[in-house]
């Protein structure tokens, strides 16, 4: 069974330990600006919402990439960017309707969540279990899926 990151914003305190863990594992330094997961703070509502790629089925980023730099990790289901192949054209960044591929000007490539190869550091770092790594059909990703379906320019198989 493939697993997904399950995010429960109600548990999030906004501490950014996930961003620290993500930037540490991917960039080798503590640098929230380079994290693949981002916590949004709705300060006048008292809501903190961690947010990253859901490895959506449509994989807009992967489809849009002109040079095959984003591929599917068959084991985890993650859509993974290859730094060696990415030319930094940024097409994926506008194609992903969730805004979860970002351009990193200091490398000239894009960054996105790769599920840490199946051992997500952000989930391990979260002190409140607001981020967990669980069986995909438990994650309640339905809302995201609905959203994704709406973006789809071609709804499938009406017949």
């Amino acid at each position: 069974m493939q697993k997904s990151l399950h995010i429960d914003p109600d548990k999030c305190t906004g501490c950014l330990q996930c961003e620290l863990a993500c930037s540490h594992v991917n960039e080798g330094v503590f640098n929230p600006a380079k994290s693949r997961i981002k916590v949004f703070n709705f300060h006048d509502q008292g809501r903190m919402v961690p947010y990253t790629c859901t490895q959506c089925d449509e994989a807009w980023c992967m489809q849009a990439c002109p040079v095959d730099a984003i591929t599917l990790d068959a084991e985890t289901g993650a859509k993974v960017v290859s730094d060696a192949l990415c030319v930094g054209c940024k097409v994926c960044t506008i194609a992903c309707p969730f805004g979860t591929v970002n351009y990193n000007a200091s490398t000239g490539k894009v960054i996105k969540c790769d599920l840490c190869g199946g051992d997500p550091e952000c989930a391990k770092a979260c002190p409140t279990a607001a981020i967990t790594y669980v069986d995909a059909n438990w994650t309640g990703l339905d809302r995201m899926r609905q959203w994704a379906a709406k973006t789809d320019a071609g709804a499938q198989a009406e017949a």
């Binding site: 305190t13 906004g14 501490c15 950014l16 330990q17 620290l20 300060h43 509502q45 008292g46 809501r47 903190m48 002190p127 409140t128």
Partner: peptide, 19 residues
């Protein structure tokens, strides 16, 4: 009290958010 909130990196999260 709406929720508790953390400062950067804090795993305690004593901060209060209120209305």
């Amino acid at each position: 009290l709406v929720t508790n909130a953390a400062c950067f990196g804090c795993t305690i999260a004593c901060g209060r958010v209120s209305t």
